[in-house]
Simulated scan of single mutants.
Amino acid sequence: MIRVALDAMGGDLGPRIAFDGAVEILSRHQDVIITVYYSPISDLVLPSYHERLFLVACDDVVSGDEEIVLSLFRRRNSTLYQSLSALSQNTAEVVVTLGNTGAMVALARHILGVLRPKLYPALIRELYSNPLRCLVDLGANVHCPPSMLVGFAELGASYVEALGREAPKVGLLNVGVESTKGSVVIKETDRLLSSALWPPYYGYAEGTELFEGDKNVIVCDGMVGNAVLKASEGLLSFLMGRFKSSSTDNSLFEAFYQDERRHGACLVGVRGNLVKGHGCSDFPAMVGAIEYGIDIARADLCSAIEARLCNKPSGQDSEEMK
């Protein structure tokens, strides 16, 4: 059985989306158990009884605009803390949340721990699922030195190997492919990746290579990745809206939107499987985020990434950590 810990309180549309999504998932998957962590509110109508759906009431919620302060780690009865604790206690295989990204990353590091010292967790988003192509990082880390970006490349490569079962081809997002372009951080990261035995590094990638080309792991800092992702999704939504209001056939856009988009991102680098969905997720997006969590739980993604990091070719650790 796949046990999902679902934080119901992070989304903009309230916990009803999480409840409805959980019930839908249970109707599709007979080998899934979902525990929903929620905070009781006056107008909340709980779902009817289901033998594989469990509800845990919590008296605290981490809101989307809260800063990461020391008191966050003492709020053990928040829905986010409780769902992550279930993962750490092996009563769940995956956590799915729509909540505060910074709080999720901080609490995941605190409660679960990291896979390797000096390896910073990162958010990965699949741009395509077949063939697999992903972008890392999406906002878990904003200020990134070269050693951190090298870690992102390793995490992205491990992800592609575990879920795509194909050879990773890493590219470093830059303003151009010429060796003279880029910041000091980007140039040093390029040097480190070029001298590493693993992962396979294919040089700089321009923005046009996000959706096509040979590279299937695109590395950048969280500020750039978040902006790129939201701009791409905004453009897709804009085009969908324009095509729907016209008589033009929009079947191609609908197919891409429904079949190729993964709902949410995966936090990798911590000792557990986590999916972070959009705060504005509607019912289909909520269902998609839970489906994503089930996929990575079935693959035991965390263990697969840890095993790959432990068995990478030697000779690069001391260099990349400078």
Rank of each mutant, 00 (worst) to 15 (best):
V4T: 14
D7T: 10
D7F: 07
M9W: 07
G10C: 10
G11V: 01
G14P: 04
D20E: 08
A22L: 01
S27N: 08
T35P: 01
P40S: 03
S42D: 10
L46V: 10
I68W: 12
V69I: 14
F73P: 02
F73A: 00
R74L: 14
R74Q: 08
S78Y: 06
T79K: 01
L87V: 01
N90C: 15
V95T: 13
V96D: 10
V96I: 15
N100V: 03
A103N: 08
R109D: 07
G113Y: 14
L115W: 05
Y128H: 09
S129H: 15
N130P: 00
C134F: 05
L135T: 13
V136R: 04
A140K: 07
A140C: 07
N141Y: 04
S147L: 09
M148V: 00
M148N: 00
G151S: 06
F152R: 02
Y159T: 04
V177N: 11
S179V: 15
S183I: 08
V185G: 11
K187P: 09
P200W: 07
G203F: 07
Y204T: 03
F211G: 10
D214V: 00
N216F: 00
D221G: 12
G222R: 03
M223T: 13
A227H: 06
K230E: 07
L235C: 12
R242H: 15
F243W: 08
S247G: 15
T248N: 04
D249H: 14
E254Y: 11
E254P: 06
A265N: 05
R271Y: 05
G277F: 09
F283P: 04
G288K: 05
D300I: 01
C302G: 04
C302Q: 08
I305C: 11
R308D: 03
E320D: 14
